[in-house]
Computed example of a mutant assay.
Amino acid sequence: MTPWRTRPAPGPPHPLLVENRDRFQTFDTAVALKDCDFTVVDTELTGLDPRHEEIVSIGAVRVRGLCIVPGESFSVLVRPRKDLPKQSTLIHRITPQQVQDRPRLRHVLPEFLEFVGSSLLVGHHVGLDMAFLNRAMADVYGLKVENPCLDTLRMAQIYRAEHWENYYDRYALNVSYALSDLSMEWGLPRFPAHNALADAMQTAYLFLYLIRKIQGGRLVTLHDLYRAGRNWRWHSS
């Protein structure tokens, strides 16, 4: 097992990372949502600390024209440097035997970047996924992903806030923002939890549901979505 501190120095930047860094320096949020390509992404991890834990699986699906695109998906298992903790296996059900012959993360990143391209990224609690992905990108290429990201957890908070009847509703302790709970509450198709590709698909359905529900379905542009949250912030790492 190669210790984190002895990882190889970053290689040349991937061309797509450079291209997207330049592309999104002057990103125009007036673009119509229906004209955007979105990549909905999810990762399975050995733990929650990006400084010490690793990605063991990446799943992603494409949304174009505000529809999930059949056949455009990405799914890969990754062999981490550290042994899989038993606790993480209990959560995502990925066993050491399943990953023992899989490629290291640095060898699957190019294919993942090609799949993402210049699309916008969507995830549920996307900051966690991007923390792990960007640590890996920085280690391998010396650059991070600059594609703007949308968080369906934050979108769900925006939608819920539109229906608060009083100030104290925001402190309700029985409210859950877990992906599976939101999907059940709003009657969305259900997929197996803690599987990267299935969670990406679950998130894609949640994303499209919220686009059609926030502000009564009157969202037209990314800027409309930005304004809907008032305190909204594009995710950055």
Results as ranks from 00 to 15, higher is better:
Ser176Glu: 05
Leu219Met: 07
Val126Leu: 04
Ser183Arg: 13
Leu225Asp: 05
Gln215Ala: 07
Arg227Ile: 14
Arg170Leu: 12
Thr203Arg: 00
Tyr205Lys: 07
Asp181Ala: 05
Ile211Thr: 10
Leu210Val: 09
Ala131Ile: 11
Tyr167Asp: 10
Leu128Val: 08
Tyr226Ala: 07
Leu182Gly: 11
Arg233Gln: 12
Gly229His: 14
Leu173Glu: 04
Asn147Asp: 01
Asp181Thr: 11
Asp169Arg: 11
Gly187Pro: 13
Thr152Gln: 11
Tyr171Glu: 11
Tyr177Trp: 12
Met137Trp: 07
Asp129Gln: 03
Leu225Val: 05
Leu150Thr: 06
Pro189Glu: 13
Lys144Met: 01
Leu150Asp: 02
Tyr141Met: 02
Leu210Met: 11
Ala196Val: 00
Ile211Leu: 08
Arg190Leu: 14
Asn134Ile: 09
Pro148Gly: 00
Met130Val: 06
Leu197Asp: 01
Leu188Ser: 14
Ala161Val: 15
Leu182Trp: 13
Leu219Asp: 09
Gln157Val: 15
Met184Arg: 13
Arg218Gln: 07
Ala196Lys: 01
Asp224Gly: 01
Leu128Ala: 08
Asn166Asp: 13
Tyr167Gly: 05
His223Asn: 05
Leu188Asp: 15
Leu173Met: 06
Tyr167Met: 06
Ala136Phe: 05
Trp164Ile: 13
Tyr205Gly: 00
Gly142Met: 01
Asp224His: 02
Pro192Tyr: 08
Asp169His: 12
Thr221Glu: 07
Leu219Phe: 06
Ser183Trp: 12
Asn231Gly: 15
Gly217Met: 05
Ile158Ser: 02
Gly217Asp: 08
Tyr171Phe: 10
Ser180Val: 12
Ser176Met: 09
Glu185Arg: 13
Thr152Met: 11
Asn147Val: 02
Leu206Arg: 06
Val140His: 11
Trp232Leu: 09
Glu162Asp: 15
Ala228Arg: 14
Arg233Met: 11
Arg233Phe: 08
Met201Lys: 04
